[in-house]
């Protein structure tokens, strides 16, 4: 099982940048209207303040995607990060067991 890392300030900044990029792109491509961007940002900001660890982050992104599908790519990317972390942990455990 992948480690449930704490949600650090730098991690928060990274996610803010990712989500802001996604909103900007969605606006620039005419995918969403400004009101949607406002609603999404108003949902994101307070939620991000409450997140403590990676599990909560992924759950939040899932919730975000269920509300606004244009965030799906961010959620999927983070899930991939999660999966990679899990595989790495398992591999290192296997390696430790063999030794």
């Amino acid at each position: 099982m992948a480690l449930n890392l704490p949600f650090s300030a730098s991690e928060k900044k990274r996610i803010e940048d990712l989500l802001a990029d996604r909103i900007i792109l969605a606006l620039q491509q005419g995918e969403i209207l400004e009101e949607v961007a406002i609603d999404a940002a108003s949902f994101i900001r307070p939620q991000l303040e409450t997140i403590q660890d990676r599990n909560q982050l992924v759950a939040f992104l899932q919730e975000l995607t269920s509300r606004w599908s244009f965030f799906a790519s961010v959620y999927q990317d983070e899930k991939k990060v999660e999966l990679i972390g899990k595989i790495e942990t398992e591999l290192s455990q296997m390696s430790a067991n063999q030794r």
Partner: peptide, 17 residues
């Protein structure tokens, strides 16, 4: 975003609410 980062973008949008 280029000048001040994603956090500021989100904060700016939220302030429009």
């Amino acid at each position: 975003k280029a000048e001040r980062g994603g956090g500021e973008v989100l904060a700016g949008l939220e302030s429009q609410k």
